[in-house]
Design a binder for these strands. Structure first.
Length: 287
DNA sequence: TCGCAAACTGAACAGCAGAA
DNA sequence: TTCTGCTGTTCAGTTTGCGA
């Protein structure tokens, strides 16, 4: 027998990932005993011990460590072939994304999706979250990733992020009266939360820039002309996160949510949604 | 249809860590 | 020190798939 049994490889990866046969069993919908036997079978066939049975838990041996990366590739390739051969994914998917999320977490997910689904063309639509939800309702996009106040989030939540004040490194814009604000667009999802927080504090403010261009907004902040509010995970490293120490009010958390078209979504849209769910990590972690 | 091998489940067991 | 809960291993019995 010189063929690798993918069931055994999958069990091996699950045990390595979780460091536990019990947890791996739950994940694989098998009993712990079955997983234990699968690992032993794999070890017997390869003639190598893959795990060190320690007093508490399991640890990969050098052989196990060597196998792990290749095992992941093997399973990945298997799943890719399986998905490609068993579904009819082709055509165009229109994905709506807010300006600030495009360049952070999304890029690696889209790259992976393009590799897995070469027959699907992605059409990216950038706008503010309210505009994207409107476009989704009109059928102008197939699915949308949006930012919504946690208290009013309607879609499938992929993550929760802090909304924070952002200013130039060692800048002084936050000291000005009224507070100069740059918020990308007047339909920006953060705008009501920001103005409500400022009004609640009795702090006067004025809009410096709202023409829908994220780069120009960033430039106004970087040059200390204004401050803005972004999700903490999307703040560039050369800008400062400001807060109560700078006299600015607390802002509410936001949910990053996924919305699919209410009418029957295409196979391609569902597949892209699956990739977004599986691949979503906090943008700063991905960077 | 039958027999065999492989793989599974569930129970029993042993070892360990942490709480009481 | 004892109890409890969690973990992995072993084993008996059952199920399933395959070839004759």
């Amino acid at each position: 027998m010189r063929n690798l049994d993918l069931e055994l490889i999958r069990a091996f990866v699950a045990v390595a990932d979780h460091g536990s046969m019990t947890v791996a069993g739950n994940v694989l919908h098998l009993t712990q005993s079955a997983v234990s036997q699968q690992i032993m079978r794999l070890e017997r066939r390869l003639g190598q011990a893959l795990f060190l049975r320690e007093r508490r838990g399991l640890k990969l041996t050098a052989s196990g460590d060597r196998l792990l990366a290749k095992a992941r590739r093997l399973i990945g390739l298997n799943d890719e072939i399986w998905a490609e051969m068993t579904t009819s994914c082709a055509g165009t998917v229109r994905l709506g994304v807010p300006y600030d999320l495009v360049g952070t977490a999304l890029a690696p997910i889209l790259k992976k999706f393009a590799e897995a689904r070469p027959l699907v063309e992605i059409s990216l639509v950038c706008a503010s979250s309210p505009q994207l939800l409107e476009a989704l309702g009109k059928g102008e996009v197939d699915l949308a990733l949006v930012e919504e106040p946690l208290s009013a989030a309607g879609g499938e939540c992929l993550g929760i992020e802090r909304l924070v004040w952002v200013g130039a490194r060692a800048g002084t814009a936050h000291l000005k009266q009224p507070l100069p604000l740059s918020l990308v667009a007047d339909s920006c999802a953060f705008r009501p939360a920001v103005t409500e927080a400022l009004d609640g504090q009795g702090r006067a403010w004025r809009s410096v820039f709202e023409n829908g261009n994220i780069d120009a907004t960033t430039a106004t902040v970087r040059t200390d002309l204004a401050v803005t509010a972004w999700l903490a995970c999307t703040v560039p490293s050369d800008l400062d996160i400001l807060g109560s120490a700078e006299g600015l009010p607390e802002l509410p958390p936001f949910a990053i949510t996924l919305h699919l078209s209410r009418s029957q979504p295409s196979e391609s849209a569902r597949e892209l949604a699956r990739h977004l769910r599986a691949g979503w990590v906090r943008p700063r972690q991905a960077a």
